[in-house]
Amino acid sequence: MQQLNLITSSNKTIMYDQYCKMLIGHPYMLSRIISCFVEEAKHLSLDEIKKLIKGVRIGDKIVNPHFHLMDKEAFIKDEGLMCYDIYFYIDLPQLDQSTKRVYINIEIQNKTSPGYHLVTRSIAYSSRMISSQWGREYDSENYDGMKKVYSFWIMPQATKSKDGCINQLKIAENHLSVNYEEKIENYDKEEQLMIYLSKGHSPNDKYESYDEILMPIGALLNNTLNYQEKNEVIKGYGLDDEEFEERMRDMCNLGEVIELEALEKGTKKGTQKERIRKNIEYVRKMMTKLQMTFKEAIQFLEIPEDEEKEIEEYFKS
């Protein structure tokens, strides 16, 4: 906690986003995403998938022989720089004793209308994931070495009308003239999944489809739910992991700090008396809920020295 009051507001937001990525990148979440949506893993149980990704932490490079985190920044000359939230590949054992490697990208996008259609950005990400395999998986002598890519886009701030919508976009074959059927494995190389969730969704209402993954993700990324509410949902869906709970608690605490700071800045437009009253309230919350000392709370809120003395007198009385 002492480290939190040494960083700027923008860094707090970045740190909060990083917590979200770490939690979505936890084996519990990844295994459910893979189980629900990755065709090459449909025959595997959740436990089997978890074993393939066991121990992953976003930021590490190599986890085990089956699961590799990729660099989150991909630069290709004349194509520019692309930054991923979560990017990895996983080798999935098949029923015929072979292994299929798939590349997976997961993005958490709060702005559903950033000035362009997100699905076009998803296509760009999938295309980069394919082109970046050049020289590693395939080349001009062996295009068949190309591996399938999945790009997931999770939008936790979607409108209520879109809540629970999952749109799948993939390459399809159409026979325009004469019926010759290409083997699906020859062209089924990319897939985008657009997942829409609303923060207005009640934790008590199950989704009609894919509830086993939509509810945990929705609760985790819902900034209107507190730690206890999030944890109750997560535990109800089978997660019992101290590290996950600790990170989720830290994320919720940091989110509350950001909200308190935003409110504090808003009070600067009011009178000094009203601002002091609000700051007393914020200091009390930070001391009780976030276990900060009085000095840490004062420093974090950047309260002027003259107001600090008045607030300190209040707590001494």
Rank of each mutant, 00 (worst) to 15 (best):
M1R: 02
L4K: 04
L6T: 05
I14R: 15
D17R: 08
Q18C: 06
Y19T: 06
I24K: 03
H26I: 03
H26K: 04
Y28F: 15
Y28I: 09
S31P: 00
S31M: 08
S35N: 07
H43P: 03
L46V: 14
K50N: 06
G55S: 10
P65N: 06
H68S: 02
L69Y: 07
M70N: 07
M70G: 02
A74C: 15
K77G: 03
D78K: 14
L81R: 13
L81H: 06
C83E: 13
S98C: 10
S98T: 15
Y103L: 13
I108S: 00
N110D: 14
K111S: 15
H117A: 15
S122C: 09
R128I: 03
I130Q: 07
S132P: 07
G135A: 00
Y138C: 12
Y138P: 00
N142E: 13
K148W: 09
I154Y: 07
M155S: 08
A158D: 04
T159C: 01
T159K: 14
K160D: 04
K162D: 01
D163A: 04
N167Q: 11
K170I: 08
N179P: 02
N179K: 10
I184Y: 03
L193D: 02
L197S: 03
K199Y: 02
K199S: 15
P203K: 05
K206T: 04
Y207L: 13
E208H: 11
E208V: 15
E212C: 09
I213S: 00
P216I: 02
L221H: 02
L225S: 06
K230G: 02
G238A: 11
L239E: 11
E246L: 09
M248G: 07
D250I: 07
C252L: 10
E256R: 06
E264F: 11
K265E: 14
G266H: 08
T267Y: 08
T267I: 13
Q272F: 11
K273L: 02
E274R: 05
E274C: 07
I276M: 10
R277E: 12
K278L: 14
R284W: 01
M286L: 15
L290T: 09
M292I: 03
M292A: 14
A297R: 09
Q299Y: 10
I303E: 05
E312T: 00
Y314N: 05
